[in-house]
Amino acid sequence: MAEIEHHLTEPLLATYAAANLPQAYALVVAAHVSLCAECRARLTAHESAGGAVLEALPGAAPSAGLRDRVMAALDAPTPRETPTPRRSGIFPAPVMAALKGQPPRWKTLGGGVRQQILHADGEGSVRLLYIPPGVAVPDHGHGGLELTLVLQGAFRDETGAFGTGDVEIAGPELEHTPVADLGLPCICLAATDAPLRFHALIPRLLQPLFRI
């Protein structure tokens, strides 16, 4: 894998460390950290800051019986954990967990573009996207933050080139048309605050999408 060039920002890592990032974005952060030693180190640093805040926090005295209950529970058998899915091919463990351990079940969007929605709630949605070489990502107007992590292949848009492991962080102001590079199909994990459906998919796909 080429060196990762586009990383997560400090505010994203801090919000993720505090477990206050909406689920859709949290999945992209967890997936990138799984691939990127640098962001893993930076996340650990934020957790250290969180730990320092915890240390300095005014405590609340636990009730008298709690200590005994906890000490007594040490002898209980280790709680059986549902095994968490492992990394599989290009999909890091948190993505496999979102896929419930199964390979993606792609739905065609037209023009060779496919997607699988992994999670959607009131705060946003996150999907896997499969973009054939040379094809543009469908118009996907996002009102707020959009995070796109490349899992295979590469794409480029007005702001730059994004290879495997890179994450593009796009604010609402960015009007961009990501186009998959020639070569491998580009597979991305994309989180937005937008509703489930892409807009204007058909008109865009009728246009010539890639010019050499």
């Binding site: 689920q23 997936a31 957790e47 948190p94």
Partner: peptide, 23 residues
């Protein structure tokens, strides 16, 4: 830091009734 991470995960899992994505 380690305890902080465990605690944030646990608290959020309880509040949202679903597991937070982890690296």
């Amino acid at each position: 830091a380690w305890v902080y991470r465990i605690a944030r995960n646990r608290q959020i899992d309880m509040a949202r009734k679903r597991a937070r994505p982890l690296p």
